[in-house]
Amino acid sequence: MVGIKEVARRAGVSIGTVSNVVNRPHVVSAATRSRVLSVIEELGYVRDESARQLRAGRSRIMALLVLDLGNPFFVDLARGAEEAAHDEGLNVITCNSGQRVELEASYLSMLAEQRVRGVLLSPVDSNGAALRTFRRRGIPYVLVDRNVPVAEASSVSVDDVAGGALAARHLLETGHTDIAFVNGPTILTQCREREEGVRSALENSGARLSVLETGALDVASGRDAGARLLGISPRPTAVFCANDLLALGVLQAMVAAGVRVPSEMAIVGYDDIEFAGAAAVPLTSVRQPAKRLGRTAAELLIAETSEREGPVEHREVVFKPELVVRASTRLHRE
Rank of each mutant, 00 (worst) to 15 (best):
residue 309 E to I: 03
residue 318 V to F: 00
residue 319 F to P: 01
residue 304 E to H: 13
residue 314 H to S: 05
residue 284 T to Y: 03
residue 319 F to N: 01
residue 261 V to D: 12
residue 283 L to Q: 09
residue 300 L to A: 05
residue 260 R to D: 15
residue 296 T to Y: 00
residue 316 E to Y: 00
residue 260 R to V: 15
residue 262 P to T: 07
residue 319 F to G: 02
residue 279 A to R: 11
residue 306 S to C: 09
residue 295 R to M: 12
residue 292 R to I: 11
residue 318 V to C: 02
residue 258 G to R: 08
residue 258 G to Q: 11
residue 270 Y to T: 10
residue 286 V to Q: 07
residue 283 L to E: 13
residue 280 A to F: 05
residue 271 D to E: 13
residue 281 V to N: 09
residue 269 G to E: 07
residue 263 S to P: 00
residue 317 V to N: 02
residue 273 I to N: 09
residue 288 Q to F: 01
residue 268 V to I: 15
residue 309 E to S: 14
residue 310 G to T: 11
residue 275 F to I: 13
residue 294 G to D: 05
residue 296 T to G: 01
residue 285 S to N: 05
residue 315 R to K: 15
residue 296 T to M: 09
residue 312 V to Q: 02
residue 267 I to R: 00
residue 292 R to Y: 01
residue 267 I to T: 06
residue 308 R to W: 04
residue 317 V to G: 01
residue 302 I to L: 08
residue 288 Q to N: 09
residue 258 G to P: 12
residue 274 E to M: 03
residue 267 I to W: 03
residue 259 V to N: 10
residue 310 G to W: 10
residue 310 G to N: 07
residue 304 E to I: 02
residue 303 A to E: 15
residue 278 A to C: 02
residue 278 A to N: 09
residue 315 R to C: 01
residue 293 L to S: 05
residue 288 Q to K: 11
residue 272 D to W: 04
residue 286 V to E: 04
residue 291 K to L: 08
residue 264 E to W: 06
residue 305 T to P: 10
residue 303 A to Q: 13
residue 298 A to K: 03
residue 296 T to N: 03
residue 277 G to M: 05
residue 276 A to N: 07
residue 268 V to L: 07
residue 301 L to M: 05
residue 308 R to D: 13
residue 281 V to T: 15
residue 316 E to A: 13
residue 284 T to R: 04
residue 268 V to H: 03
residue 297 A to V: 03
residue 315 R to M: 02
residue 295 R to D: 12
residue 262 P to N: 10
residue 293 L to M: 12
residue 266 A to Y: 11
residue 300 L to C: 07
residue 317 V to C: 01
residue 306 S to N: 12
residue 285 S to V: 12
residue 296 T to K: 06
residue 268 V to Y: 05
residue 311 P to E: 02
residue 277 G to N: 07
residue 317 V to Q: 03
residue 301 L to Q: 06
residue 262 P to Q: 04
residue 306 S to D: 13
residue 288 Q to L: 14
residue 313 E to C: 06
residue 262 P to C: 11
residue 291 K to F: 04
residue 315 R to E: 15
residue 280 A to D: 06
residue 270 Y to L: 03
residue 287 R to W: 03
residue 303 A to D: 13
residue 261 V to N: 10
residue 304 E to T: 08
residue 299 E to I: 00
residue 310 G to D: 06
residue 264 E to Q: 15
residue 262 P to E: 07
residue 313 E to L: 14
residue 278 A to R: 15
residue 281 V to Y: 08
residue 306 S to Q: 14
residue 310 G to V: 10
residue 276 A to E: 07
residue 306 S to K: 13
residue 275 F to G: 01
residue 317 V to H: 04
residue 293 L to Q: 06
residue 303 A to C: 00
residue 287 R to T: 04
residue 293 L to C: 05
residue 301 L to T: 08
residue 309 E to F: 08
residue 279 A to I: 04
residue 266 A to D: 05
residue 310 G to P: 10
residue 263 S to L: 10
residue 286 V to M: 04
residue 313 E to P: 00
residue 261 V to M: 12
residue 294 G to F: 07
residue 258 G to C: 11
residue 270 Y to R: 04
residue 316 E to H: 11
